[in-house]
Structures are given as C-alpha cells and as structure tokens.
Write a protein that binds this DNA or RNA. Structure first.
Length: 493
RNA sequence: GGCGGCUUCGCCAAGUGGACUAAGGCCACGGUUUGCAAAACCGUUAUCCUGGGUUCGAAUCCCAGAGCCGCCUCCA
C-alpha cells in the first residue's frame, strides 16, 4: 500500500515519498486575520488536517506550518487599492495589531472546535519582515527583481518557468484585459515584492528601499523556507490561490534558491452555498460561529469529509441535516459499543470477527492511500458499523478484549485519522451564573430518577404516564431509548 | 477572450477501461425487534447529461453538443 497524492504541479496522482525518510515538511497557506473564519476556511483546514493526521498515522514525523497573515494586502493585483486589514481596523476603530489579535484568536477557537490539530508553527507575517526583506534583497542581487519608485517588483520575464503550476503562458497573461497597467512595472504581470508606503498607510516598515510593506506573495516563501528548508515536501492551499499566489511563490523561491520549491502541490476545492460561489467580496459567506449555532462542529467536519477534498462542497441545510443523521448513526454504534464494554466481563469470543476487522481496516487505509479519499473511507466506517451493530444485537458471545479492540479500531480510523470520533464522551457540564463551566453529575442523577420512575410505571403497564414523560423530555431535546438491558438517554443538540 | 474542472438513484456522494447486474449516507416504502417508540437489523430503489467513436469489454478513453462551475482583482 502506497500513499498517493494528486500533485497539481504534474497534474497526476503520484506516490508520496518525502525528501528525508520518515519526515514530512508541510506548509499550508493560512488565513488573513481580518474577520471571523467562515466555512471555506473549515473545508480547507479540515482537509489538510486529515492529511497531516494520516501522514502521522503512517508514522511520518510531520512539521506542519501554517502562516497567519497579519499584514494587510492590497485589494487589487495591480498593486493599488486598499489594505483589507487597515480598512477593517479603521471601521472598527481599532489598532491594526488589536484587530489582528482578535481574529487570530477567533481563528484558533474555531479550528479547535472543528477538532483540527494545531500546526506546529503558526508564523505571523508581521514578525518575519526581516526574512522577507532579505529574500527581496537576494532576488535583486540575482537580477530577478528591480526597484522602481521605492517599490520592488519581480521581473517575470527573467523566470522562464513562470506559469508552470497554473498552466498559463506569458503572452496570454499579458493579453488579459483585467491587468491594469502600472507604469512602475516593466511588464504588466510583474508582481510586487515590496511596496512603498504612501503617507496614509499605517502599517509600514523600514527597508533598504524606504518605508513600505511586503507584497502579498512574499511571506509564504520567506516563512516556509525559514522553517521547512528550501524545498518543501508538501505545500497546500486553496484552488483559487493557484494563480497568482502560488505561481508567484514558486517564482520568488526558485529564483532565490535555484532549487525546486515544492515537491507536492496540493489544492483543495471551494465551498459553494446553495450552489453559489462563496466569496469574501460577494459577502455571502457563512461564518463558523454562525454555523456552530445550528450544527455541531463535528457535524460540519464530518460533512466536509463526505466530499473529496478536490471536489467542490455545496453547503445547504438539507445536506447538513443529512450529514448530522449520518454521523449520529456512527456515534450510536460507538455509544452502544462502549455501553456493552462497560458491562462485559472477561470471557470468550466466538466467530471470525478479527478477520472482519482486519478487512475493514485494510479497506479504509486503501481509500486513504488513494489521494485521501475520505468519502470512501467513511463508507467503510458505515460498513464496519453495520457489522458491529449486528454483532452487538446478536446472541454471539463477545469478550471484553474483543470489544476493546473494536473500540480501538474506531479510535484509530474515526478518531486519530478522521477526527470525527471523540475519544471519550465529554463530561456533562453545567454553566453557573458566574460563567464557569463545571463538571456536574446532577443532570445524570436527575435523569436516573426520571428513568427509574418511568420504568416503574412501565412495569405496571401505565403506558400513558410513561409516554408522557418520554414525550415531555423529547420536547426539550432529550431522547430516551428503551433497550433490552435498560434505558439510556441522550441530549440532541 | 484565455486556462481548468464538473454533469452518477428523489437528495448528497464514491468509483476514471473488466469482480459495476455502480460503494456509502440521507429520504421513502415493506419487514424483524419494541407495550408503543427510538436505536438497530433485513429487504426494495440508478446503466452513469446527449449523440457519435475506439475496444472483446466504457460511467471510466476519444470527438462533437448541451448545461453548470472555478481561475485569469481580493478570497481557504
């Protein structure tokens, strides 16, 4: 079994092999922190999170770097226009540094909720200005960049391979009507490495070319190479950034080092909302904080993973509801499994369950190996659940060890790799008036009293009253399940 | 205008030359189980946008057409 990735650079699925055996250096374009993260961020970072998790599962030591863009970039590729962070900071009457801090925290908060493993390093662009300046200087020295009116531009004509990632040719780009002519540039498709700051521009740094700020492609090159070396194993990002962003990163980096910048380019597809493109400028994006009010973060995570990362994902209430039911089905099996485990003593297991477990595991891993085919992998989890449910419902003897092994398999596949199964049910928490969340067994105890009372009624066939209790609880979102071995309850969000 | 992608059951979504009389989920219907439910299990539901072609064999490759979408300003 070999892990394969679809490499955007070669447009082929390729077997994965890192430069240094056992180690993977991976960089993913992070967010610009000027607003709350939205579901597009969720798709992107959940997708890459699963890739990181899977690589680690396979035994690789992964260094995962994801930048935080806290320097505003201009709203226009002609290198004119407004700075998003500045604009937003002015609107909210905050220091840019304050604004960026608020949304950086918001970002981590939401990513944590989605159960994404944090990157090993989250470098801030603002904290790496010297590295960026150094890279620009190197490019000037090597003749790939030129200074013009206190700004520095990359001379695209000097880098013959410009366009190799996006499949664009120089001539076509120049013919493109949308590139505005900037008289400072030699060539319309030259891009800014360093921009001169106009007097009104607050975020500015000293540089050999005067006060200014870095061009928007620069930080990724500078920071990724600083922490991961001159050639990265994997660089990930959104499809929409293939051009110009990633193309420019390649140009800058390879011109500076004369080495391949990235071995595997991985691009994830976009989110649409009810069939429509979701974009910042369209203003139709759904923030995660809003989405979480309606759906459990793990439901959103699961939903994202039911579509392949290279396919577009359409976000709709119907689809989310369906995902919610599906995930619930999976969680039901695990809940039942753990309840059974709780009650089971040592003993013997009959049948060939282990053979089956091996089969499901193998099929699951094969799906993951095929360019991280999470939809297929999830299908295997459902097949496994059908098997486990049947087993639990049957009269077949199962011992504790066997149940533990099944639980462990779910932990590995659904937990460690996909991150859609929590290790243990979260303890119940109660919020007191002063805001602390405290573990509290009271709800459990109250539920036990209610359930016991109802079961007394059921014993004496007082169905009307027992149904009354169940219906009333259902109205407040608590479901009772009468099983052969007792009644359980759960609260549905 | 240039470049790229998509079209699979009512809905979502895998599959990219032969075990496909097409995975899985949701929904629906029938059954088992249940005091009734819930959960669970069993069963039922597609020939793969259209038209040509290549091949012993195509959802999968090629050509043409239709529809949808993305990138070529910012965006994950």
């Amino acid at each position: 079994m070999t892990l394969k990735f679809y490499n955007s650079l070669t447009r082929k699925k390729e077997a994965f092999a890192p430069i240094h055996e056992g180690h993977v250096n991976m960089y993913v374009c992070g967010p610009t922190v000027y607003d709350h993260p939205h579901i597009g961020h969720a798709k992107s970072y959940v997708s890459f999170d699963v890739i990181v998790r899977y690589l680690r599962y396979l035994g690789y030591k992964v260094r995962y770097v994801q930048n935080i863009t806290d320097v505003g970039h201009l709203t226009d590729n002609a290198d004119t226009g407004e700075d998003k962070i500045l604009k937003r900071a002015q609107r909210e009457r905050l220091e840019p540094a304050e604004l960026v801090e608020i949304y950086t925290r918001s970002y981590f908060e939401d990513m944590d909720a989605l159960n994404n493993v944090r990157p090993n390093i989250s470098p801030r662009a603002k904290a790496h200005i010297p590295e960026q300046i150094e890279l620009v200087e190197r490019l000037i020295e090597k003749g790939y960049a030129y200074v013009s009116n206190s700004s520095v531009y990359f001379d695209v004509n000097k880098f013959k391979e410009y366009g190799k990632l996006s499949g664009r040719k120089q001539e076509e780009l120049e013919a493109g009507a949308r590139i505005e002519i900037n008289p400072e540039k030699k060539n319309p498709s030259d891009f800014a490495l360093w921009k001169k700051a106009e007097p009104a521009h607050i975020m500015r740094w000293n540089s050999p070319w005067g006060e200014g700020f870095p061009g928007w492609h620069l930080e990724c090159s500078a920071m990724s190479m600083k922490y991961l070396g001159q050639t990265l194993d994997i660089h990930g990002g959104g499809l929409e950034n293939t051009f110009p962003h990633h193309e420019c990163e390649i140009a800058q980096s390879e011109a500076a080092t004369d080495l391949p910048f990235v071995r595997y380019w991985i691009h994830n597809n976009m989110v649409t909302v009810n069939g429509q493109k979701m974009g910042k400028s369209l203003g139709n994006f759904i923030t995660l904080k809003d989405a979480f009010k309606k759906y459990h973060p793990l439901t959103i995570r699961f939903f994202i993973l039911t579509t392949h990362y290279r396919s577009p994902l359409d976000f709709s209430d119907e689809a989310l509801d369906a995902a919610n039911r599906g995930l619930e089905r999976l969680h039901n099996t695990i809940t039942n499994l753990r309840e059974r485990l709780h009650q089971t003593k040592e003993g013997s297991t009959s049948g060939d369950i282990y053979e089956k477990l091996e089969h499901y595991k193998k099929t699951f891993l094969e799906a993951m190996d095929e360019d991280i085919n999470t939809p297929s992998a999830i299908a295997v989890l459902f097949d496994l659940s059908k098997e486990v449910n049947s087993l639990l419902n049957s009269s077949q003897a199962i011992n504790k060890k066997c149940l533990e092994d099944i639980d462990k398999l779910y932990q590995e596949l659904g937990g460690d790799i996909l991150g859609i199964i929590e290790p243990k049910p979260k303890p119940l928490a109660t919020t007191f008036s002063f805001g602390w969340q405290v573990e509290d067994k009271t709800p459990d105890d109250i539920m036990k009293v209610l359930i016991d009372t109802r079961n007394e009624l059921r014993k004496t066939k007082q169905w009307q009253l027992s149904d009354f209790i169940r219906n009333k609880l259902s109205e407040i979102g608590i479901t009772l399940d009468d099983k052969s071995d007792g009644t359980t309850w759960k609260k549905i969000k």
